[in-house]
Write a protein that binds this DNA or RNA. Structure first.
Lengths: 406, 406
DNA sequence: AATAAGTTCGGTAACAGAACGAACTAAAAG
DNA sequence: CTTTTAGTTCGTTCTGTTACCGAACTTATT
C-alpha cells in the first residue's frame, strides 16, 4: 500500500523529495526542506501534514539558539514499517530487522537446521518473527523479507539452483513457501551479491560505484557492481569465478564440473595441495596456523593460492575494471592471504587496484540485504513506482549494528 | 536549447511520453497517442499543437478505411535536428549523420590522414560537414557529434590515452579541438564500446541487455553491456581483454606491457607463432588463406588462437555472464575462427553461450555512435533533464543504412 | 528591530472527464 | 444501385480538481 492512492505524478515526485530530505537529514524543519528541495514552504507544509497524518513522520522538537522564530523539526517514524533480512548459510542462519530509518536491529543467529528443505523455511520464518519481537516491533509492520542464499536464485520458479550447502532446495519453491509462512513479499538473492551491496553501502568501498567483492571459502565467487548497480548476468550466474579458465587446464572434463579455478582455490584444492606437498592432512585454518609457525609447505601452498587469487582479480580488472576490490569469506578475509595478493597483483596487472579485506565480516550479507530491502521499501512506499523518483539510502553513519543475540 | 524554457515537471513528462509514442509508432493519430500514454485527448492536442508550432512534428496525412471519423496523423520532422557520428580508425575515418527519426544518413569514408593530430581533427570536421551537405541538411541543425576512437578517452581532459594507431592524440585535447572546429558538443567514446552499443541496438544481439562484443584485430578488446548499460569501468578501462592473465605467463615482466593474452591473440602473436612453426612469414589474411588451402601449420596456429579466444569468452561468461557474445574485428569476424571457438567453448565452460559474428561489420561503431548521439539528443530536446523521463530508441526497422559514398 | 518560521490567500499550469459536433463506415431501406 | 441511418471514432470545448508558487501576513525568537 503506497502513501496515497493515486496522487498526481508531480505530487508523488515532491513527496519523494521531501521524504529523501527527511530520511537523509535527520530531524529537519520544514523551512530547511523547502530550501533543500526548492519547493515552496507552503507545499512542504501541505506534504508534511499529509505524511504526519498517515503516520510516516512525526515532530521531534524545535530548533533553538538561532535568530528568528524557532522551527518545528520532523523525523521519520522509524518503526512505521520494516523489512527482514536473512543470511542463509550452510552452517548458520542470521536474521535481522531493518526499519525505515535504516537502522539494522535485533540480529538473531542460529545453526542451520540440518534437515534442510521445509524445516529451514520454518526456521527462517521463526527467526524473522523472533527478531521483530525482540525489538518490540509488531509483526504486521513487516513489509518484505530479503533472503541471501548460497546459490543462484531462479527468479521465475522461486527455486535455488547450484546450492550444495543447503539440502532440499532444488525442487522447492522457496519464495512461495517463505511468502506463505511470512505473509510478505520475498526477495531471493545470492549471498555474495548481497555482500557486494553491503560493502557498497557501508563497508570498505562505500561510495565506489564500480567494485568487486570476492568471497573465498569453500568455493570462490564474486559479487560485482557496475555504476552502482549489481551485475546479475543473463542467467543470474555472474561472478562464478570458479569457472575462470586457468588454475588447472580448463579443457579437462573435470573443469566443466568443478571449475578450473575452483579446483585450486577452494578448500578442497588447498588441502589437497598441502597434503601432496607435506604428506600431512590439515584443514585450512590449520594450514594458516602452520604458516604462522613457519611451515614451508604451508607457505608454498598459500603463496600459490595467492597467485591464483591475484590472477582472478586481474581477470576481473581486465573485464570490468572496478575501482576497488574487497576480499571476504573464511579464507579471503585472512590478512596473510590478502597481503600476498596485494603484493602479487602489480606483477600481473599493469594499473594498480585497491585491495581490501571486508570490513563488515560475517555481517556483510545481512547489511546488503537490508540495503536491498530498504531501497525497495522506500521506493514502494514513497516513490509509488514513478520512474525517476528514487530515494537513495542515507550514508553509513545512520546505521547501527546492534549486538547479536545468542 | 530545449523545447520549452521552464515548463512544469509534469508537462515535461507528458511531452516526453508523447514524443516517445510519435518516435516509436511512426505516423500516429492524437487519439492513438492518448490511448497509448493514458493521457487525455485534450492534453495530447495541447502538446501536439505546441510541438507542431515549434517545428518538431508535422501532419503526415489521415487514416482511412477504419470505422469512424478519419484521424490526422503526426510524425516527427526528421531533419529538425541531427547528430554526427564518426568512427576514427587507424586506417579509415567514417562519418555519418543521423536524424531525429533515427535514420543513419549519408555515410562518408576516407583514409585517415597519416599526419595525425590536428590534421585528423580537421579531417573529421570536414567529413561531418560533407556528410551533412550530402543529405541537404543545413549544418546549423547539427546538435552534437559522437566520435569513436581506438583508445581510452580521458573524459576530464578530453584526451585519448593508449591509442597507438592514431599519432599525436596523447597530448591534444581532442574534445576541445573538435568542439572548436564543429561548434557543437563532442562525445568521445571507445570504438569497441560503440560497437557493443551498435550491436545491442540493431545488430545480432538486439534486445539482449547483457552482452559482450569482442573485437579481435591488432589487439583484443571487448565492449560489455550489463542490464542494457555500457560497462565503462572505474578508469574507463573495462574490456581490456589483452590483460587477461593467461595465454602467456601473466607474471612475466613483458605481460605488464603488452598483456598476457594480447601477446598470443593479437596480429603480432599469430604471425610469430606461424613463423615459428612453418618458417614462413605471412600476414594474418595470408594465414587464413593458407588454412583454406589445407596448410597444417596455419590450422594449428588458428586452432590454438581459437582456444585462447574460447578461454577469453569463458572468462567473460564466468564474470559477467552475458546472454550473447558477438565477435568482430578483422580477425574476430572470420567464420573459420568463430566456428572453431563455438566448438571449443562448451569444452571449457559449462553453461552454453550464444556466439555470433557481428552483423553490422565495419559499420557497427558508426551505428553505436548514432545510438549514443540520438539517445542524448532526444533526452536533451524532449526530456529536458527530468529524471525518469527518457525516450528509448525505436527498434531496428526504422533505421536505414544508406550506401557508402566513395 | 531584525530575522526566520509558518500560514493564508490569490493566481496559474496541467490535467481529467463529460459533453458535443464532425467525419467516416457499414449496413439497412428504398 | 442509391439513399438513408445507425454506429463509431476523432477532436474540441468546457468545467472542475490537483498541485504548485509567490506575496503578504502573522508569529516567535534573538
Amino acid at each position: 500500500m503506497a502513501v496515497n492512492e493515486a496522487p498526481r505524478i508531480s505530487r508523488q515526485f515532491s513527496l519523494c523529495m521531501v521524504m529523501e530530505a527527511i530520511v537523509h537529514c535527520g530531524p529537519i524543519s520544514r523551512a530547511s526542506i523547502a530550501k533543500q528541495t526548492g519547493l515552496s514552504k507552503q507545499t512542504i507544509s501541505e506534504i508534511a501534514r499529509q505524511l504526519e497524518e498517515d503516520g510516516w513522520i512525526r515532530e521531534t522538537g524545535r530548533t533553538q539558539g538561532h535568530v528568528g522564530r524557532s522551527a518545528v523539526t520532523y523525523e521519520i517514524v522509524p518503526d512505521a514499517a520494516c523489512i527482514a533480512t536473512v543470511d542463509l548459510g550452510g552452517t548458520k542462519v542470521r536474521a535481522a530487522i531493518a526499519d525505515l530509518s535504516c537502522q539494522v536491529l535485533a540480529e538473531v543467529t542460529e545453526p542451520t537446521d540440518a534437515r534442510g528443505g521445509v524445516h529451514v523455511i520454518s526456521q527462517i520464518a521463526r527467526l524473522c518473527r523472533e527478531a521483530a519481537a525482540h525489538n518490540n516491533i509488531p509483526y504486521e509492520r513487516l513489509r518484505m523479507a530479503v533472503v541471501g542464499v548460497p546459490g543462484v536464485p531462479d527468479q521465475e520458479r522461486g527455486r535455488i539452483v547450484m546450492s550444495p550447502n543447503v539440502t532440499g532446495f532444488e525442487t522447492l519453491d522457496v519464495r512461495a513457501a517463505l511468502a506463505a509462512e511470512l505473509g510478505v513479499e520475498i526477495v531471493l538473492e545470492n549471498d555474495v551479491n548481497l555482500a557486494a551491496i553491503g560493502e557498497h553501502w557501508i563497508g570498505s568501498v562505500a561510495g565506489v560505484d564500480d567494485l568487486a567483492y570476492i568471497a573465498i571459502g569453500t568455493g570462490i565467487g564474486a559479487g560485482l557492481m557496475v555504476g552502482g548497480d549489481l551485475v546479475r548476468g543473463f542467467g543470474n550466474a555472474a561472478g562464478e569465478l570458479g569457472f575462470l579458465p586457468f588454475g588447472t587446464d580448463p579443457f579437462e572434463a573435470e573443469s566443466l564440473k568443478v571449475g578450473a579455478l575452483e579446483r585450486v582455490t577452494g578448500t578442497v584444492g588447498i588441502r589437497r595441495r598441502y597434503r601432496e606437498l607435506s604428506g600431512r592432512e590439515l584443514d585450512v585454518p590449520g594450514i594458516f596456523d602452520a604458516l604462522g609457525a613457519g611451515d614451508v609447505h604451508a607457505r608454498q601452498v598459500l603463496d600459490e593460492t595467492a597467485r591464483y587469487v591475484a590472477r582472478a582479480v586481474a581477470a576481473i580488472c581486465a573485464i570490468t575494471n572496478p575501482g576497488k576490490v574487497v576480499l571476504g569469506g573464511s579464507i579471503g578475509s585472512r590478512r596473510e592471504l590478502v597481503e600476498r595478493v596485494r603484493d602479487l597483483l602489480p606483477l600481473c596487472f599493469p594499473s594498480p587496484v585497491e585491495l581490501d579485506v571486508s570490513e563488515l565480516g560475517s555481517r556483510v550479507a545481512i547489511v546488503g540485504g537490508a540495503a536491498v530491502g530498504l531501497t525497495h521499501l522506500h521506493s514502494t512506499l514513497f516513490a509509488g513506482g514513478v520512474p525517476g523518483a528514487e530515494i537513495s539510502l542515507p550514508p553509513a553513519k545512520v546505521v547501527k549494528l546492534v549486538e547479536a543475540v545468542q
